[in-house]
């Protein structure tokens, strides 16, 4: 990861010195283990603030929305797909963006690591073929796949889909991945079982909206839950309101979600809400053969009409 950091700094310094961009968006090293902070630098002499390791999971495309500057942005596979989304949804102009691509072998999940350490406070995590976890309880080695973030385990686009610079050789893409094992399980449930499943899933929600706000897709000037004339959704922690928020938000992401995992990553209450967006992702894939954020020229299925669109739902 040191190599990645070095390369990101080199590229950032060059771009800023040559005046090709006004700012570089990346991460700076966090003040705690297992988290880094989205950060920008505007001056070549500050590029050493930029940093990279396997805890740079938050989707940086979120920080591009509606910015007018010329920006270089550090992007993993998923981030790059959201940059594509942003371009085709007119949230940024392609010619203003320089993508510093980061081939990615998967981000590590901080909660999985915390669990692996038996809840003892984590002091340091060293990534490698095995992941070394130093906690107050001692040092422990675990298999990387056991502590990799859920969405990264089933990721099939680890390399950036668009890029102007690459910080390393591309990594091998994962093949024969069943992306929808969890969704299929839920699909097979009865209505009542589904209800219970979603009740439990969302029972700890505090409506902080971290999931929505970390999502690059959620850029509506006023979200439907914040509308007051009329007010569509109540403000309390009543379960109908909580479900309305999560379900509707997921629908708004249909055909757009890249499964970057930011929503789950940022949830302070450990809610696994990706099953909702993944169901819609699966439907889009099954019905339209569509994967979001891969093409700058093709329009997403939900904003176009084609005569051969599936219409079995019309009874």
């Amino acid at each position: 990861m040191l190599e990645y950091t070095k390369k990101i700094r080199e590229i950032a310094e060059r771009l800023l010195k040559e005046g090709k961009v006004d700012m570089v968006i990346g991460f700076r090293k966090g003040t705690l283990p297992m988290i880094n902070e989205p950060h920008f630098v505007k001056r070549a002499e500050d590029v050493n603030e930029l940093y990279w390791d396997t805890f740079c999971a938050v989707n940086l495309a979120n920080y591009l929305t509606d910015r007018k500057e010329r920006i270089a942005i550090v992007a993993k596979g998923c981030d790059s797909r959201n940059i594509v989304n942003h371009i085709i949804e007119n949230k940024v102009k392609k010619d203003k963006i320089v993508v510093i691509g980061v081939p990615c072998k998967g981000m590590l999940g901080r909660r999985k690591i915390a669990l692996a350490a038996g809840g003892s406070e984590i002091l340091e995590v060293i990534d490698g073929a095995k992941v070394t976890i130093k906690s107050k309880a001692g040092v422990k080695e675990v298999d990387r796949k056991d502590v990799t973030q859920d969405n990264c385990i089933i990721c099939t686009h680890r390399n950036p889909v668009i890029y102007d610079e690459l910080v390393a050789e591309k990594v091998e893409e994962q093949k024969n991945v069943d992306r929808y094992e969890d969704v299929k399980k839920i699909e097979a449930m009865s209505v009542q079982e589904k209800n219970e499943y979603f009740d439990t899933l969302l029972s700890t929600c505090i409506r902080c909206y971290a999931c929505r706000n970390a999502c690059p897709l959620c850029y509506c000037p006023t979200c439907f839950v914040d509308e007051s004339k009329p007010q569509w959704v109540g403000k309390s922690i009543e379960e109908t309101d909580i479900k309305t928020f999560h379900f509707l938000r997921a629908y708004h992401c249909a055909g757009r979600c890249t499964d970057c995992g930011s929503c789950e990553r940022v949830c302070p209450m450990n809610i696994k809400m990706r099953v909702l967006t993944k169901k819609l992702e699966k439907d889009c894939f099954d019905q339209f053969g569509w994967e979001a954020g891969l093409s700058l020229t093709e329009r997403p299925p939900l904003d176009t009409y084609k005569p051969n669109d599936p219409q079995d739902f019309i009874k």
């Binding site: 902070e37 989205p38 950060h39 920008f40 979120n62 920080y63 505090i206 409506r207 902080c208 909206y209 971290a210 929505r212 706000n213 970390a214 109540g234 403000k235 309390s236 940022v266 302070p268």
Partner: peptide
């Protein structure tokens, strides 16, 4: 403030944040 998502996590988990809305 650049990184801030403007979610309510910090204020909701904070023991001293006291703001409320009436509905």
């Amino acid at each position: 403030s650049f990184a801030c998502l403007n979610c309510g996590t910090c204020t909701f988990v904070c023991p001293t944040c006291w703001c409320f809305d009436i509905q």
